[in-house]
């Protein structure tokens, strides 16, 4: 199985995560996206990431999936932290070490120096934890949810049927496109062209065109057949009256997670809002002092 196939193929297991209703999973994804915006504290963001990672581990995913997840998370964390450490512009900032000294001839004068800042690292870590949590949860959703459930879930969240259908169908064809890219590159190699062995930009652009052209032409032809096939079966003839053979039904467990998640999300947002009102001098009451302390330390 190629990496592309593994990235989009859902696993079948009887774990708690697998059994959750697709709507609940989409809700949790949306709720987490709100949470990562509201949370600024590295401790709580780390806690959230640990919680999401624990959920991923509890889904008993194949080792190769976990490996892909780990590589993606590490790349994201490293990339975000390093770039933020380099390009942190707020003040105050403390230089940890110098990469290019401003007094170096030519390059130093041209760049004005390149430094790694301590505050940049911290800020990068916060951003990285946000990104890593969303990435983990997103992959967990796609690895534990059957596409048909995902389709119904998206429709439940009022995403138009056409858009939901196209999203899920595009995901189904992604591995096929990846295989085609591999085939095109091989064809080029067998005709004496080394597509990826060059640092020459012109050649890399030419390679991209040589590869994109047949892939796009093929995608367009396939899309044409898919469109004709869908339209032959009445797709879009009457979107308002469309019915559904399968429905999603909430179990007690789903309802519990949904309510629990909602209460938790609303609670966090409320505490944060109350704290922000106090912090900005808009509203203060001594009754909420403990809450202000909690928010300051954790949120």
């Amino acid at each position: 199985m190629s990496i592309a196939q593994r990235m989009i193929r859902p696993t079948v297991n009887a774990t708690f995560i697998h059994q959750l209703d697709a709507r609940v999973k989409i809700f949790l994804l949306l709720a987490t996206s709100v949470l990562v915006i509201f949370l600024d504290n590295p401790k709580s963001l780390l806690l959230l990431f640990v919680f999401v990672s624990a959920a991923a581990l509890s889904a008993r995913l194949p080792a190769k999936n976990l490996k892909i997840l780990a590589v993606l998370v590490l790349l994201a964390v490293w990339g975000t932290m390093f770039s933020q450490a380099l390009f942190y512009s707020k003040l105050p900032r403390t230089v940890l070490f110098v990469i290019i000294h401003p007094k170096w001839p030519v390059i130093g004068e041209l760049t004005g120096g390149l430094f790694v800042y301590k505050q940049g690292f911290t800020y990068g870590a916060v951003q990285a934890l946000r990104f890593a949590s969303m990435l983990t949860l997103g992959l967990l959703l796609s690895w534990t949810t059957q596409p048909r459930d995902l389709l119904l879930g998206l429709i439940h969240f009022k995403v138009p049927y056409e858009v939901s259908f196209m999203t899920v169908t595009a995901v189904r064809f992604l591995p096929l496109v990846m295989n085609e890219v591999r085939t095109v590159l091989t064809v080029q190699r067998l005709r004496g062209y080394r597509p990826l062995k060059s640092s020459n930009w012109i050649k890399l652009i030419r390679t991209s065109l040589y590869t994109l052209k047949p892939i796009l032409a093929n995608c367009l032809r396939r899309a044409g057949t898919l469109a004709v096939s869908a339209e032959s079966r009445g797709f879009r003839v009457n979107p308002e009256e469309r019915t559904y053979w399968r429905g999603l039904e909430y179990s007690y467990m789903d309802r519990g997670v949904l309510w629990g998640g909602t209460v938790f999300l609303v609670g966090i947002v409320a505490v944060k809002v109350v704290y922000l009102l106090y912090f900005n001098g808009v509203y203060y009451t001594p009754f909420l002092r403990e809450l202000y302390g909690l928010a300051k330390n954790w949120l």
Binding site: R148, T169, A230, N238
Partner: peptide, 28 residues
């Protein structure tokens, strides 16, 4: 059509067969 892979959208057989009747708005 010619290529079965280019005309199946669903991942499960019953969903594929249901696609047309669903589009027609038939009762479950």
């Amino acid at each position: 059509f010619q290529n079965p892979d280019d005309q199946l959208f669903a991942t499960v057989v019953e969903d594929e067969v249901a696609f047309g009747p669903e589009n027609l708005g038939l009762p479950r």
